[in-house]
């Protein structure tokens, strides 16, 4: 009995002295794996860029900057809304938290829609995966990011369903915060991709 009680008493002290884990440990294992995956993909980008600097300088001019900017605004805004959902939950405003999360979901759904129109625009302008090294790397990175964002959107749907049925409270909102951390990490990755392909001409 005594040996069972000791770890329970020590846990809060350890949390305070070492800092908190936003969300839960599981999501941070996932985020670290996501970062490692994208670091590998970014290295592919840098190696290709170092070998073919001209192709990368001219490539961005052929892409739709409008699409890249719209997707970035959607990512940043949905990230903000979900951060507000966490903040209002902490403040004990559960209904507001739910509304922020719904807003975050609606805005995040704009990303795959904008991506669809971007690809249509690309194909209409003769840009596909075989249009050169720049576009091969562009499709490789952006599709990978879309896959990760889709997982995030599915995560938002799951958390929203739990939220609707009162699954979170100001005392226990780890699941909501875990989703928020994943979405923020996916947002940071998109900001890098945006600068790679749409800004650096």
């Amino acid at each position: 009995m005594t040996s069972l009680a000791i770890p329970l008493n020590e846990a809060p002290t350890e949390t305070v002295s070492k800092g908190r884990v936003p969300g839960n440990k599981g999501i941070w294992v996932g985020i670290c794996c996501e970062f490692v995956e994208f670091i590998v993909l970014f290295v592919v980008y840098f190696v290709a860029r170092a070998h073919f600097p001209d192709a990368f300088e001219q490539g961005a001019d052929r892409l739709s900057r409008l699409s890249g900017t719209v997707i970035t605004l959607l990512m940043v805004t949905s990230s903000f809304f979900i951060a507000c959902s966490v903040a209002t939950m902490r403040a004990g405003q559960q209904r507001r938290s739910l509304y922020w999360l719904i807003a975050g979901l609606i805005v995040s759904l704009g990303y795959p829609i904008a991506k669809y129109f971007e690809i249509q625009w690309n194909l209409a302008n003769g840009i596909n995966g075989e249009s050169g090294i720049f576009f091969t790397v562009y499709y490789y990175l952006t599709f990978n990011h879309l896959v990760h964002a889709t997982w995030g959107i599915l995560g938002i749907l799951w958390v929203l369903a739990r939220h609707l049925f009162g699954g979170y409270s100001p005392e226990d909102y780890a699941g909501l915060e875990a989703l928020a951390c994943y979405w923020h990490a996916t947002d940071i990755i998109w900001l890098v991709i945006f600068s790679f392909f749409y800004v650096l001409a």
Partner: peptide, 22 residues
């Protein structure tokens, strides 16, 4: 941009040092 999201949205200054460093 990355720093703003990490600091304001994820609040890394309150997070465990490992998460902060990552």
């Amino acid at each position: 941009k990355g720093w703003l999201i990490a600091r304001q949205f994820i609040e890394i200054e309150l997070a465990h040092p490992f998460i902060r460093r990552v």
